[in-house]
Design a protein around this nucleic acid. Structure first.
Lengths: 160, 160
DNA sequence: CAGGCTGGTTTCGTAATGCAACCGGAGCCT
DNA sequence: AGGCTCCGGTTGCATTACGAAACCAGCCTG
């Protein structure tokens, strides 16, 4: 299946001036992020993803095409490989797993553990910190328009 | 609209033995994470979300109900507030923004900047590190079944 | 008590999903 | 050559979810 650019563009956020919306445009549906996850686990071929996920072939085909279109996967020698842009999703996947380990499964209920291959020690949870490395919460943060802010975005922050 | 538990359950992954799938079960569609983002920006009332996102009322109603069902929001005095479980999504949102800032907008194109309220310095990007604080990549990692792994999950890792 | 605002629910057309069947090429046998 | 069987899809079609707009019920406010 060819990626026609319109999938998930129910209401297009492709032009939305927000990084989170942009990220969701690239992999913001049910399957897409699971496909990426499997790629991190080592899946490369169409049949790898198909077997691991139990996804319908047409949907898988569409999602892979989309990921290639977004330069998250590259198709070489009939295999789908993570690009640097795709590899850069590691913190996203890690944050999601951290969250569910803590709030869905709870301590001792983690279905998978991620360890350092050499030291065999667990990877610590991601922390949002200030420039000095001190952990911060939502209340310590201030969100301001950046250099790429649209007029609309600026207006939004002025209103607040 | 009442949350009937079936939304997004095209194929239910609610029981899937994977944290990422679990996270997606809670907020795995287009709008839901944007609703959460807006809550982090300070939105509390139905009309706040509606105005910021331009979302249809029925969809918003459904998503809010789902977020309440998943204990990410709590409805108190007619307002939707982030629970601790919801606040814990900060690293997820941060990871998504980090990624799009780097790979979609590029340096100097960031639509929004997140700063420390006191020091006014930017929050550094999230890094996946080993136990000593050294940044690691996908190739440094090994994924193993955890204490909560289902037999199916264990089999999957044995096969590899 | 008319009118407006908030916070929804209902209706209904449209778009995405997912199952199953089909298909074309490559690599074997024989 | 002829036929078998994977692999990697595409096509067709029924089902389901999504989303825009209309509607509605409570609560203020004048």
């Amino acid at each position: 299946m060819r990626y026609d650019g319109a999938v998930l563009a129910r209401k297009r956020f492709a032009g939305m001036n927000c990084g989170i919306a942009q990220a969701l445009e690239a992999f913001g549906d049910w399957w897409t992020l699971l496909v990426v996850r499997d790629a991190f686990f080592g899946a490369r071929r169409f049949s790898d993803f198909e077997a691991n996920l139990g996804i319908a072939k047409n949907i898988l085909s569409n999602r892979l095409a989309r990921l290639v279109a977004h330069d998250i996967f590259a198709k070489v020698d009939g295999e789908y490989r993570l690009t640097p842009k795709g590899e850069a999703l590691l913190p996203v996947l890690t944050a999601l797993r951290d969250w569910s380990d803590e709030w869905v499964f709870g301590k001792g209920g983690e279905p998978v553990l991620v360890k350092d291959r050499r030291t065999n020690r667990r990877i610590p949870k991601l922390r949002v910190t200030d420039a000095d490395g001190v952990e911060v919460t939502r209340r310590d943060l201030r969100t301001v328009p950046g250099p790429g802010a649209s007029p609309e975005t600026r207006r939004f922050f002025e209103r607040r």
